[in-house]
Design a protein around this nucleic acid. Structure first.
Ligand SMILES: [Mn+2]
Ligand SMILES: [Mn+2]
Ligand SMILES: [Mn+2]
Ligand SMILES: [Mn+2]
Lengths: 236, 236
DNA sequence: TTTAATTTTTAGCCTTGTCTAAAAATAAAT
DNA sequence: ATTTATTTTTAGACAAGGCTAAAAATTAAA
């Protein structure tokens, strides 16, 4: 029975580990949860005592099997609630993170599984991030590419957002980009990686700044169904 | 920004005050929240410092305007979530209290109001208790009588449960009683208040023990729409 | 109106989670 | 290989919430 605070730390560590099973530094965790390194150091010790992380003094932490499972369950609840808020309560995708940050701590397996069913067992949250299943592992999702690395002259769909802070999400709104937006890369500027693209719904070409291209997952419109386990860095 | 613990205390005090605006004893609150009188005494002082209760040393507490409003908002969230759990996730009415006890602490006005709308602005929770509106006051609900005090030979409907602990709710299930059940009082035993009743759906008469009759709200099947603000003692 | 019982508060202690400031260890740079 | 910079941990404090045991106030009984 982890506390709310402990759960937030565990989820932060999961995000920072991000597939790569290497250790995460105290400072990185501190920054993620918004605490000082001193407080975080103390918490890492407590998490180690409870068997949720391996803590190598001065070298960081890594989630144990048990810790990973706990963290995945929290992430599952977070993303399911985000789906609920957007699909059924009419929230925008840039408004749900903070609320889900609290709902995720209501820890009831019954509730979570029934919510999952109610939502139709979604694979992705409103930001295109994979939702862990009841077994604590990601459900398989089609392959995806960063827009920044996508080839030219292909019909692409925006399928996800990397590190989708609310400010970035609202910026996408201003640009008229959302999940499902279709576009084609016309030109890539070698200098900084800016892209000239054309959206499906418009005749005009448009420039996308590198900071945007590096944070959008895309897929081909006619997807070859390669199955893979994605590991985005998105926190939501 | 009250903590979860503070919110639970405030709600407990609201329940114990129950319409009557007189003071509530420390021991009663302690029992309700499951803490010792010593811990509760300390908490009452803190609540007083923050202006949420008037605390007369040695004589108990009474919610202030601000405290009452906070408590009503918590109760609103609790009962809205109970409706959600029963109406949309398929929980039984004896399974929702504990989960709502956690969900009620997710404090977002936006979330609460959208949930309210999603549910169709319900007036009653699954136990027949009134749901406070966004203004922090109960929505008007038709008058109700305790079954123990209802006249004979009237067509009655069960509209609510007093103090609906899960055990009592399951007992009602065994007896085949739920909200909406229709019955008529045939006979009242003067000795202990037991009632002989006949349910709508059956020919046979049935005996109801006093402990049951005193904890069921009923209304006439063809209700004369008297408007009143109910104050049940139910905690859910 | 004393005495006894009950209720409430205080005193003292503990855990969790947070902080700042200082010490210790590791990593980087000369 | 030292010195310097950075990171991590430790030390010491504090607030919230909880407990038990003891003191004080109130209420009930004699
Ligand atoms: Mn959270
Ligand atoms: Mn998300
Ligand atoms: Mn609660
Ligand atoms: Mn209820």
């Amino acid at each position: 029975m982890p506390t709310v605070s402990v759960e937030n730390y565990l989820k932060a560590i999961l995000h920072l580990q991000d597939g790569d099973g290497d250790r995460v530094s105290t400072t990185a965790v501190a920054e993620k949860v918004g605490a000082t390194p001193a407080s975080t150091s103390a918490m890492m010790t407590r998490l180690g005592d409870r068997g949720w992380v391996e803590h190598e003094r001065y070298y960081g932490v890594r989630l144990t099997e048990k810790g990973q499972r706990l963290a995945m369950d929290i992430l599952r609840r977070h993303r399911l609630w985000e789906r609920f808020l957007v699909d059924h309560l009419g929230f925008e995708w840039d408004q749900v993170h903070e609320i889900a940050e609290e709902l995720e701590h209501v820890d009831s397996v019954e509730l979570t599984n029934r919510l999952d069913a109610f939502l139709g067992f979604p694979k992705l949250d409103p930001h295109g991030d994979a939702i862990p299943g009841p077994n604590g592992r990601f459900r398989s999702v089609a392959a995806r590419t960063l827009l920044a690395e996508a080839p030219r002259n292909l019909d692409l769909v925006v399928v996800g957002v990397v590190d989708g802070g609310d400010a970035f999400l609202r910026h996408l709104g201003v640009l008229g980009i959302e999940l499902g937006s279709r576009l084609t890369v016309i030109e890539r500027h070698a200098f900084d990686g800016s892209l000239v693209v054309r959206f499906d719904n418009s005749e005009e070409q448009q420039l996308l700044a590198p900071g945007v291209c590096e944070r959008l997952w895309v897929d081909q419109s006619n997807p070859s169904p390669v199955i893979v386990f994605p590991e985005s860095e998105s926190p939501n």
